[in-house]
Write a protein that binds this DNA or RNA. Sequence first.
DNA 1: ATCCGATAGAGTGTCGACAATATCAGGCAA
DNA 2: TTGCCTGATATTGTCGACACTCTATCGGAT
Lengths: 241, 241
Amino acid sequence: MDNPEPTATTLADRLFQQLQDAIVDGRMAPGSKISEPELARIHGVSRGPLREAIRRLESSGLVVRRANVGARVAELTLEGLFEIYYVREALEGMACRLAAQHMSATEVADLRRLLDAQRREMEGREAPVYYQQGGDLDFHFCIIQGSRNRKLIEVFWRDLYSQVRMYRAQFGTAGPRVTHALTEHRHIVDAIADGDGELAELLMRRHIRQSRLNAQRQLDPRAAATAPAPTPNPNPTQDPP
Amino acid sequence: MDNPEPTATTLADRLFQQLQDAIVDGRMAPGSKISEPELARIHGVSRGPLREAIRRLESSGLVVRRANVGARVAELTLEGLFEIYYVREALEGMACRLAAQHMSATEVADLRRLLDAQRREMEGREAPVYYQQGGDLDFHFCIIQGSRNRKLIEVFWRDLYSQVRMYRAQFGTAGPRVTHALTEHRHIVDAIADGDGELAELLMRRHIRQSRLNAQRQLDPRAAATAPAPTPNPNPTQDPP
DNA sequence: ATCCGATAGAGTGTCGACAATATCAGGCAA
DNA sequence: TTGCCTGATATTGTCGACACTCTATCGGAT
């Protein structure tokens, strides 16, 4: 992830990256106050670039700011997590439909290779933690990229990606879902390879919806009851052989 | 649109509003360079708040910026317009599904009143220009609001709304579609009133898709051919009696 | 005549300082 | 003791100035 050229970007850009990483992986606790003079002193910069970085973090939803009061690291709520799932279901569903139309054969092949690598890595270790943290988002972002829709890519990258990573780092990820998610991913790639945008969208939406329901079951069983039992399958998280 | 309290916001906020309006309605031409010292002199402020406003405009997609080079008003392209339609189809479709679950009876009644007012205004004048410019977006934003999904509302407001207004002001809006759009709006409200989220989403997505196809036919007939003739209806923009 | 390099200019990035506002502690009155 | 008012303090908002980068023009060489 390191930038090959050391100082081709502006100072505010680097501050934004550093603060984003610090917030995402929890070094800056959610809800903690962000003092401009203190942070400027710590990073050895002036308040100008720091303010710019903070404002960009605000656009990413990682910090909340009030005029004349200051900025705080965004609080994580279950409600906010589930809201993001709904937005992702809509956005990534559409991305999948478009990817089925626009992705090249080599891109689909790359996607298949990614899934194979993840499967091998998952078979190797007992607790597939690493996979879900990075690989899953890699898969989703590849499909977003394949949609060829710059606006969609921009919205996902700026408004969703960092916050999804932050929620993952804080709340962790589900256990038995990951292996099932892999087969769902494979079916999605199959639909994309067939150029079946409608099916690809449907599968992606169901995939994200299942992820949300899984999270709701694990984190907030009360909320899961709002879904009117879409399938009578008693163990939907289990994998068929 | 005037703020009732004269100076309850910060200076950068007001600059952001002013510049946003100027860009949206075309007073600042697309592609024109934004010189920080010049704009600062014109508005009688320093470069600090101006830079903050420009950065927020960049987040809204109204301005593109390159490090050490400067900012320009975003160029409008047909491709960009159509890309936004796809994102809106996904996002507002989901918003409609959620609105069907969460909107209160009084909100639905308000929506019906809005539609009636627009119908009356449209019957009054021959060329229903005013309606489409403001009222249509009012309708869509009411539904977005009714989704009760703060993240969805935030994304729509920050990343889509201003650019949609800008494209409308520059390219204008279609003629014979507006009356058809009104009946589509009514059907959507009916589905929401019934609490039928699935139908509401389907209708909203079809509505936005039709708007996109209409725009593609009018602005870029070549692009419209990429859609595989979804219906053999020779005049789909015409209204049934 | 065309292409390349140097130089001047403008503009952006960054900094430190001042002014305005919110927060908090302390004192006073009921 | 509790509530409110007042002042002190720290933080944010804003400003002007300096340093560095990119762009464009001009001169010279091929």
